[in-house]
């Protein structure tokens, strides 16, 4: 098999092809789209031929058993996989029609527009204030009033009232749920368009989880959100669309992740078209 035939999407001019002609499942005018995307770690193909797109101001959930490649897809959406030695993306990932892995794409610029929140809260070893100001400072954003920007970001992340009197205290003094909201506020401070969330509640208790979920629903008015979650109820509660991934054996008998079904969350959780999806969401598998 030649690289060309395995990778038909490469060379396609995304900018001049209307999204509807790409025949991708999902919303009409996507912010991000994946066409025949496969991601490799060295020789291991973690996920194969993913086609899906993420709509503006929507929350899209990616669910599936461990090792199905959902986090891998998420991390290739803002090129975090570049940090993993040996990681390689085939196929086309488009951001408003621009090839994210194109030649003159600056990865720093990509991550400024497509922010990320991680599984484990990872505040920087510094004050709450500095955590928020970090992004604008390192990206050289023009900021008139940093205090104001910090307040806004914390307010949007529903954390302001809890921390306004200790902005210059260490971020480590916050609880796990507060730390995660701080990380969300930190991501908001650079004013991205998309926020990627990699199992953002898996290290949190139910009350903190509920706060983050409320926050996500709030933020979806301004941002496009993609969330990877192991918690199916969470996907059902917050997302408009859901992508279900699972692990299958490829033509060489190697395990690889595949997108099984991508549809509105309502459809996925009520009348999924694939029996594997049904088995997973009803808990009979995975």
């Amino acid at each position: 098999m030649t690289a060309e035939s395995r990778n038909p999407a490469r060379g396609l001019d995304l900018a001049s092809t209307p999204a509807s002609d790409l025949k991708l499942p999902g919303p009409g005018s996507p912010v991000l789209s994946c066409r025949d995307v496969s991601v490799y770690y060295g020789k291991f193909r973690a996920v194969t031929d993913v086609n899906l797109s993420f709509g503006a101001n929507e929350i899209t959930a990616m669910i599936g058993p461990s090792g199905c490649g959902k986090s891998t897809v998420l991390r290739s959406l803002n090129r975090m996989n570049d940090l993993v030695p040996g990681a390689r993306v085939e196929g086309l990932i488009g951001y408003h029609g621009v090839d994210l892995y194109g030649k003159d794409v600056d990865v720093i610029e990509v991550r400024r527009r497509i922010g990320m929140v991680f599984q484990k809260p990872n505040p920087f070893p510094s004050s709450i204030y500095n955590n928020i100001a970090y992004g604008p400072r390192v990206t050289g954003m023009h900021v008139d009033d940093m205090d104001d920007l910090v307040e806004q970001a914390l307010t949007r992340a529903a954390l302001w009232d809890e921390v306004k009197n200790k902005l210059h205290k260490s971020a480590f003094a916050l609880s796990g749920g507060q730390q995660q909201r701080l990380c969300i506020a930190r991501a908001l401070a650079t004013n991205p368009e998309v926020i990627l969330m990699d199992e953002p509640c898996s290290a949190l208790d139910p009350i903190a989880t509920q706060k983050i979920e409320d926050l996500m629903l709030d933020l979806a008015r301004e941002f496009t959100i993609v969330i990877v979650t192991h918690n199916m109820q969470q996907a059902a509660r917050v997302s408009q669309r859901t992508a279900f991934f699972t692990t299958v054996a490829d033509e060489h008998g190697e395990r690889t992740g595949r997108l099984v079904e991508f549809d509105t969350t309502e459809k996925i959780f009520s009348t999924p078209s694939d029996e594997r999806t049904e088995a997973y969401i009803t808990g009979r598998f995975g």
Binding site: N78, R111, G115, M116, F118, N122, V138
Partner: peptide
């Protein structure tokens, strides 16, 4: 230093 801290900074567009 935990790799998660670095990832957090890279995800904000830090060099």
């Amino acid at each position: 230093v935990p790799p998660g801290l670095r990832e957090g900074a890279y995800a904000l567009g830090a060099t």
